[in-house]
Computed example of a mutant assay.
Amino acid sequence: MPSLIVEPPLNTQHFIMDRDDRKRNKNIGKNFMCRLQCMFSHSSSSESRLSLEDTQQWSQSLERLLESKYGLATFRNFLKSEYSDENIEFWLTCEDYKKIKSSFRMSSRAKKIYEQFIKAESPKEINIDYHTREQIKRNVKTPTMHCFDDAQKIVYGLMERDSYPRFLRSDIYRTLLENLAADATKG
């Protein structure tokens, strides 16, 4: 005798919540798009407006995402929402650190970076191995522009393998794409 499979009745409240969630996500995406564009409206660069094509290109690589001011801002916002923004903050801080020319400023800044990101139990401690942490501890005593390179490579790899794929699957990115696609079809 074949078994009878009884499916539960369609829960209309669940359907309504899904529709409401989609509507809410669309509004969140629109609001976020507006905030992004307002943040950079004073900029005179060629990337003055957030476009669907640029946003789609963020999915090609983490490097592509970070090269875009809107991509970087969106990625940072996503990481903050997950309480995991220490990696991008460290990576960006290292990029700025490499631009320092003064050895006095470099020394001062290296110590601050160490205290903020490298030292065990620091406020924004990054996830690096003991060997790298100890090497940086020694490097900071006589800092060069490359004293954080190993840690920066590790952090970039972590973001590329972990945070970046989650970002591409996130509501914030998908909603942003959907809103830009809808705007593009409107004309």
Rank of each mutant, 00 (worst) to 15 (best):
M1H: 10
Q13I: 04
H14F: 12
F15K: 11
I16S: 00
R19T: 08
R22Y: 09
N31G: 02
C34E: 05
L36E: 02
Q37G: 01
F40M: 01
H42F: 10
S43M: 14
L50A: 03
S51Y: 01
S51L: 01
S51K: 07
L52A: 11
Q57E: 15
E63P: 06
L65T: 14
L66W: 07
E67K: 15
S68Q: 06
K69I: 01
G71A: 10
L72V: 06
L72S: 09
A73V: 00
T74D: 00
F75W: 07
N77W: 05
N77D: 08
S81H: 07
Y83C: 04
S84H: 06
D85H: 03
I88H: 07
F90E: 09
L92W: 03
Y97M: 02
K98Y: 11
S103R: 06
S103D: 06
M106E: 02
S107N: 12
K112V: 03
K112C: 07
E115M: 10
Q116W: 01
Q116S: 10
I118P: 03
I118C: 03
K119G: 04
A120I: 05
A120Y: 08
K124D: 00
K124F: 07
E125P: 00
H131N: 07
Q135E: 14
D149G: 09
Y156S: 07
L168P: 04
I172M: 04
K186P: 02
G187P: 00
